[in-house]
Each structure stands twice: as structure tokens, then as C-alpha cells.
Amino acid sequence: MIPPCRVVIVDDHPLFVSGVRAEIEHDLDVVATANGVDDAIKAIVAERPDVVLLDVHMPGGGGRAVIEGIAATGIQTAFLALSVSDEPRDVIDVIQAGARGYVTKTISPADLVDATRRVHDGDAVFSPRLAGFVLDAFREGGADSDPELGRLTAREREVLRLIARGHAYKECARRLGISPKTVEHHVSSVLRKLQLTSRHELTRWATDRRLV
């Protein structure tokens, strides 16, 4: 029996919140929903959920403001960014603030439940799109020309490339001849590097995704 996972859903569109709730409440314990930054912080402080499904775009600072507000209270919870936006800047922004993963709103209910559980277990969840953004940001001769920045190892790149191609972690592991746990380890390491990279560098990358 899988231990219950307590979830708070945060999105400024009530219709979307009720849709997600209906999709996942068979498998997950949805303890609260919120429609704004302040509501979300109150609900998280009151409920202490395991995972917060967090919209990237919201009035009043967006997902980043919620993550920073909760960090200030010292409450430990995991954030999974859920967005309809394809703007690399927004996605990178919320990951840098401390989200453990990013999935798009078109994700299937089963995949969303799976991603939520993995974030709960401490894993990092990279959608193909996020993997692509990260590969782009850390491209040779790209924004990482500063040697101080944690460069990606060749193996990390291989893993990200397979994820970007649409492979699940298990398939990545099989293709590379490593265990799924090792794949997970690489992805978490990339997430850590991403969060340690200066915001300025990544913003510069996001604003000039230029032709080479």
C-alpha cells in the first residue's frame, strides 16, 4: 500500500483547479486548493501538505512568490510546477526558486499522479520540455561560458537528451545500461546545478535564445 500523499492545488483559474482535483483525487489526498498567492501560503501553512501543485503564472508574483513565502516560514514541502506557459524564463524562474519539477498542463492524469508521487519521494521531475530548456541553457558556448557555473557532465547531458526525446526514466536507464536510480541521481544533480546557477546568467540565456 502506497502511503497517502497530501496535496494542495494552487492555480488562479478555479475551473482548472476543480479539473485537476477531479483527475487526481482517487489516487492522492487533496487537502486544499487556493486561487492566489496569499491564499496558497495560508493553505500550505495550515495544512502542511506533502506536495504543492503550483501554477507558474498568477497575479501577485506567481509561483515564485508562493515558494519564497513558504521558504520564509521554514515549512518543508515539495513544489511541482504545473504550467500552460512555454516561456523558458518563467519555467526556469520557478525551478530556481525551488520547485522540484515542471510538467505542462496537458499532462495525462496518470502521469500527473506519478509525477506528484515522485516529487514526494524527493525525486526531480523533468518533462521533455524542461530537459530541452536545460540543455539549451547549458549548451557548449552558451550561457555557461563562465567556468564557475556547474557544467553538465557528459552523462548528465545524455540523460537529459533522452528525456527531451520523450523517454521515461526507465527507458533512459535501459538505453544507457544504468539503473533507474542512477538516472534519478543524474536528474537531481542537474536540478541542483540549475538552482545554484546565477539567476542573471539564466535570464540572459532565456532572453536571447539566438541563432548560432
Binding site: 521533455p128 520540455r129 530537459a131 530541452g132 540543455l135 539549451d136 549548451r139 527531451a164 526525446r165 520523450g166 535564445r209 539566438r210 541563432l211 548560432v212
Partner: peptide
């Protein structure tokens, strides 16, 4: 799902 790295 289109994912791109780099452009030319």
C-alpha cells in the same frame, strides 16, 4: 511535443 535545443 516539440522540444528544441539551439537553432540555426
Amino acid at each position: 511535443e516539440v522540444v528544441s535545443v539551439g537553432d540555426a
